[in-house]
Lab assay of single mutants.
Amino acid sequence: ELREAFRLYDKEGNGYISTDVMREILAELDETLSSEDLDAMIDEIDADGSGTVDFEEFMGVMT
């Protein structure tokens, strides 16, 4: 189920989504998050600083 959700956002099928897209997902899930909260969450999610979120990083957030 998580893989299907990931595929919805990984429109190009390249195995990752951008941190911008991940930020939008988080904002949709919790509309009360401030910009600073979102920045901090993205920094934590994208631990390797690649600017992308792969499936493993995505799973870590969603579980």
Score class of each variant (00 low, 15 high):
41 M>P: 00
55 F>S: 02
6 F>M: 02
15 G>I: 03
40 A>M: 10
7 R>L: 15
63 T>L: 12
54 D>I: 07
54 D>Q: 10
47 A>V: 12
26 L>H: 00
60 G>F: 14
54 D>R: 10
50 S>P: 02
48 D>C: 07
50 S>R: 11
61 V>Y: 14
13 G>E: 07
43 D>A: 15
38 L>E: 01
28 E>R: 15
42 I>Q: 01
11 K>I: 11
51 G>W: 02
6 F>A: 01
27 A>S: 11
21 V>G: 05
60 G>W: 15
14 N>T: 11
41 M>E: 01
13 G>C: 08
63 T>N: 10
44 E>T: 12
26 L>P: 00
50 S>G: 05
14 N>C: 08
37 D>M: 12
27 A>W: 09
45 I>P: 01
21 V>Y: 07
30 D>N: 13
41 M>Q: 05
53 V>M: 04
44 E>M: 13
27 A>P: 01
12 E>D: 11
51 G>Y: 03
63 T>V: 11
11 K>G: 05
37 D>A: 11
41 M>N: 01
31 E>Y: 13
25 I>F: 08
52 T>V: 09
6 F>V: 02
32 T>K: 10
48 D>S: 10
47 A>D: 06
42 I>K: 01
61 V>Q: 04
54 D>S: 15
9 Y>Q: 05
59 M>A: 11
2 L>K: 02
15 G>W: 04
57 E>R: 15
37 D>H: 06
55 F>K: 02
17 I>R: 00
15 G>Q: 02
39 D>R: 06
22 M>S: 00
30 D>I: 09
39 D>P: 01
33 L>F: 06
23 R>F: 02
33 L>N: 01
37 D>Q: 14
45 I>W: 06
24 E>T: 12
33 L>T: 03
44 E>C: 13
57 E>K: 15
24 E>I: 12
43 D>Q: 14
58 F>G: 01
25 I>P: 00
54 D>E: 07
8 L>S: 13
57 E>N: 13
11 K>C: 13
5 A>C: 15
32 T>E: 08
47 A>G: 11
6 F>T: 02
7 R>K: 15
32 T>R: 09
51 G>K: 06
35 S>Q: 13
38 L>K: 02
62 M>I: 08
11 K>L: 12
58 F>E: 01
62 M>N: 02
53 V>Y: 03
3 R>K: 14
51 G>N: 06
16 Y>L: 05
17 I>V: 06
44 E>W: 13
46 D>T: 05
20 D>C: 10
5 A>H: 09
49 G>Q: 08
14 N>P: 01
15 G>V: 02
57 E>L: 12
18 S>Q: 05
40 A>D: 09
28 E>N: 13
35 S>W: 08
21 V>Q: 15
30 D>V: 08
32 T>N: 12
25 I>V: 08
17 I>C: 02
57 E>Q: 15
61 V>P: 02
45 I>D: 00
17 I>P: 00
26 L>Q: 00
48 D>R: 05
23 R>C: 02
14 N>Y: 06
6 F>Y: 03
43 D>C: 12
18 S>T: 12
50 S>E: 05
41 M>F: 07
20 D>E: 14
7 R>C: 15
21 V>N: 09
60 G>V: 13
26 L>E: 00
3 R>A: 13
26 L>I: 07
59 M>W: 09
56 E>L: 11
9 Y>G: 02
17 I>E: 01
11 K>Q: 10
27 A>R: 14
59 M>C: 10
6 F>D: 06
26 L>Y: 02
62 M>V: 07
18 S>V: 02
40 A>Q: 09
19 T>E: 02
8 L>V: 14
23 R>L: 04
41 M>A: 07
21 V>F: 06
43 D>E: 13
42 I>C: 02
23 R>T: 01
23 R>W: 04
36 E>W: 09
5 A>V: 15
62 M>F: 11
31 E>F: 10
36 E>N: 09
18 S>R: 06
9 Y>M: 08
43 D>T: 12
45 I>H: 03
44 E>K: 14
2 L>T: 04
61 V>F: 15
20 D>N: 10
18 S>E: 04
28 E>W: 11
63 T>P: 04
9 Y>K: 04
14 N>D: 07
50 S>F: 05
16 Y>F: 12
52 T>C: 06
47 A>Y: 09
30 D>E: 04
25 I>M: 06
11 K>D: 07
49 G>D: 05
19 T>M: 11
57 E>W: 06
21 V>M: 11
59 M>F: 13
24 E>N: 11
27 A>I: 10
32 T>V: 03
33 L>S: 02
36 E>Y: 09
25 I>G: 00
16 Y>E: 03
43 D>P: 03
16 Y>I: 05
17 I>T: 00
8 L>K: 15
38 L>F: 03
16 Y>P: 00
47 A>Q: 13
16 Y>G: 01
28 E>K: 15
22 M>R: 00
29 L>V: 07
26 L>C: 02
54 D>Y: 14
17 I>K: 00
3 R>N: 08
63 T>H: 09
46 D>N: 07
63 T>G: 10
18 S>N: 06
59 M>V: 13
51 G>P: 00
15 G>D: 03
4 E>K: 06
8 L>D: 09
3 R>P: 04
48 D>Q: 08
61 V>M: 10
51 G>T: 02
62 M>E: 02
17 I>W: 01
20 D>I: 12
37 D>E: 12
45 I>C: 04
61 V>D: 00
34 S>M: 07
